[in-house]
């Protein structure tokens, strides 16, 4: 799965929506609650890995799904807000639990036009 955007932050946000899409249709998730998260890593690809695993941890322990994400990154430190609601199996029809982000296909890069792309394979 991958996310793209005009900024590194936007690419991370879109990739997290793609992570939700592995579980259920993101538009089915009501943006009722907000969860603040933080993580850090010495370089962008590891930060992306940490970001996705942070989201997976919050999904698992809060038993929530998130439909929108807001990310700020400053000097290798990420502050994020996850917007979503508790899992409702009947309405969300969740297909599968993500186990973790992997290093397989892990890539964070900016193309010649300045567009960012963040990607990796999620183990389910």
């Amino acid at each position: 799965m991958f996310g793209t955007g005009p900024t590194l932050e936007a690419a991370f946000e879109q990739a997290a929506v793609a992570l939700t899409a592995i579980v259920c249709e993101p538009h089915r998730v009501r943006l009722r609650d907000r969860v603040a998260v933080h993580c850090a890593a010495p370089e962008n690809e590891l930060l992306f890995y940490e970001w996705l695993n942070t989201v997976i941890f919050e999904m698992a322990t809060r038993e929530m799904l998130f439909g929108r994400y807001q990310v700020q990154i400053h000097q290798g430190r990420l502050s994020g807000t996850l917007l979503g609601e508790p899992v409702d199996p009947r309405r969300h029809q969740p297909a599968v639990e993500p186990k973790g982000a992997t290093f397989t296909g892990l890539e964070v890069r900016q193309d010649a036009r300045g567009c960012w792309r963040a990607q990796c394979i999620i183990d389910v």
Partner: peptide
């Protein structure tokens, strides 16, 4: 379950 997944995730980064 979640415990094994989290151990694997954390160990991967640490072992790198």
């Amino acid at each position: 379950r979640g415990l094994g997944h989290q151990i694997g995730t954390e160990a991967l980064a640490e072992m790198l």
